[in-house]
Design a protein around this nucleic acid. Structure first.
Length: 512
DNA sequence: TTCCGACAGTGGGGTCGCAAT
DNA sequence: ATTGCGACCCCACTATCGGAA
């Protein structure tokens, strides 16, 4: 298949607003694909590269190359070239990668270049990713969409399922069962604003500690242990303590879901930054493990002794978990009967926060494990802080925000009346607010370099955030975690905005 | 007819490892 | 030794479509 065909369809998908139309377009193309094209065409149209990482990003791609007049590239040729490119390493590899990218782009027409750019940077922006591709695949093969989706969750890969499905038809879907050693997409949580709201929505539930670390799925089959992240990357080699912990458990075959984090000598959890740095260390793992040891804390069991537990209700899965995993390695929790038990749940949240954790996750006792879904059966509750900050500048947006000022630079007051930038945010803005702030900020503009519009520091905005973290980038030595706009405070003057001093005082645990 | 679940889009900060400077 | 870049952890929120109620 020609790349130009793919690029054209991607463009049509982007232009279509109805999801059903997007699905139909993808299905048509999947039917056209020859068997050898399938493992390439399917991920490409789901906006992903089969190779995963290439070592090529926005920077290399932004070196413009004149496009070819005629399309000649096939998808298989593109795939072969990208595979070669991804293998490069060592001195001179970056220049060689850039050269190969230039060669590829030079062989591509303008439309193909656009498509390749989006594909490689992971920003196809066609309004269709995995979920729509699954629908299209089901439509192309006559399979039931829900069955395809389930197979993809269990295989952890759309591509694998697509190949089997196109080769052998719907019957192939039965082959994708939960298997120890093969990671499945983890179940995710939605956000609730309070424990009362969460318990109100769920009824009988468990309230569990929300630990601020790295999500892991641990598979053990005899002596073999594999550890996977949320995106199913294999990080076994980086976490020897977790492997040991899994081998100590009194079970030969299991899949457990949990969080890995580091505790200090005082027993309190280290900051997310410290845990994430440790888990990210790959070169001298022994040294990293000595300095920042990590522990797994499990909260769910997907499989034990060959029994698939996914469809069991959570209370039954937890009973299995409790039989296998002793308490320090199992998350702390409390059971709540329903709305009349709010005080118990709120007390548990308070204790959890006092112990230094992030918040709680409220989980319905009757819900199955919905692999790969961000369902309403798990609701996370974290305390939210707010500040009144001053807008120092704003950046022009991209995509559907093109032509609007989007990303705000936020400042807190210094003692001398100047402002210290604490970070940026683009979250929480409605279309109406985007329009309003674009106009208002341009009235205050003192400079526009085409990317950042610097403004007079007069506009006050209320910002919600989850906490402070240390920063080497910003002048106060700290930055806000997960900052988002709540509302503008036109009733407030910049001189009434919050100060760096009060911010630091509110988070004594974070010393810049 | 209205409501709501699921998705995609729009980017945030930090850290590590590698290659280039 | 330092810097720039890519990959990958953590993530909030809004708009939209289309099926459920």
């Amino acid at each position: 298949m020609l790349l130009s065909r793919l690029a054209d369809v991607s463009g049509e998908v982007a232009a279509a607003s109805a999801r059903s139309r997007k699905t139909a377009l993808l299905a048509e193309l999947f039917r056209e694909a020859e068997p050898d094209d399938v493992p390439i065409v399917i991920p490409y149209l789901a906006g992903r590269l089969p190779q995963g990482r290439l070592g090529v990003g926005w920077k290399v791609l932004s070196n413009r190359v004149p496009p070819a007049a005629e399309s000649s590239l096939t998808v298989r040729e593109v795939d072969a070239r990208l595979t070669e490119l991804g293998k490069l390493s060592g001195p001179g590899s970056q220049a060689e990668r850039a050269r190969l990218v230039g060669e590829l782009m030079g062989a591509a027409t303008e439309g193909e270049q656009r498509f390749l750019f989006g594909l490689i940077t992971g920003e196809v922006r066609q309004g269709a990713l995995d979920a729509v591709a699954v629908e299209g695949l089901a439509q192309a093969t006559g399979a039931v969409a829900a069955d395809v989706r389930r197979a993809v969750m269990l295989a952890g890969s759309l591509q694998t399922v697509a190949q089997a499905l196109l080769a052998d038809g719907s019957a192939a879907l039965d082959r994708f069962r939960l298997t120890v050693g093969r990671p499945v997409l983890p179940m995710l949580a939605q956000t609730a604003s309070s424990v009362a709201e969460a318990v109100g929505r769920l009824g009988a539930c468990a309230v569990e500690e929300k630990l601020d670390g790295i999500r892991v799925q641990v598979h053990r089959d005899g002596d073999m242990v594999r550890i996977h992240t949320r995106t199913l990357d294999d990080i076994t080699d980086r976490l020897p303590e977790v492997t040991s912990a899994a081998l100590e458990l009194a079970g030969e075959r299991f899949i457990l879901d949990g969080e890995v984090l580091s505790f200090g000598a005082d027993g309190r959890p280290r900051s997310f930054q410290e845990t994430a740095g440790r888990v990210g260390s790959r070169v001298d793992v022994a040294k990293a493990a000595q300095e920042v040891p990590v522990s797994p804390v499990f909260f769910d069991a997907l499989s034990i002794d060959g029994r698939d537990l996914l469809d069991l209700p959570f209370d039954a899965r937890h009973a299995e978990l409790a039989r296998l995993v002793p308490e320090p390695m199992r998350v702390r929790r409390t059971l709540v009967a329903g709305g009349e038990d709010i005080a118990e749940a709120e007390g548990f949240l308070a204790v959890t926060l006092a112990r230094g954790h992030e918040g709680v996750v409220v989980k319905a006792l009757d819900a199955p494990y919905s692999a790969g879904r961000r369902g309403a059966a798990w609701l996370k509750v974290k305390p939210v802080h707010t500040l009144d900050l001053v807008v120092l500048a704003a950046e022009w947006g991209h995509g559907r925000r093109t032509g609007r000022l989007s990303n705000l630079h936020l400042g807190a007051r210094n003692p001398d009346g100047t402002f210290a930038m604490l970070g940026k945010t683009f979250k929480g803005l409605t279309d109406a607010l985007l329009t309003w702030q674009t106009e208002r900020l341009q009235e205050l503009a003192v400079e526009d370099d085409g990317w950042v519009v610097t403004v007079r520091p007069e506009l006050v905005v209320e910002i919600a955030y989850d906490g402070l973290q240390r920063s080497s980038r910003y002048p106060a030595g700290v930055t806000l975690r997960f900052a988002r706009v709540v509302r503008y405070r036109e009733d407030k003057a910049a001189q009434e905005a919050d100060t760096v001093e009060t911010l630091l005082a509110a988070h004594p645990e974070v010393r810049p």
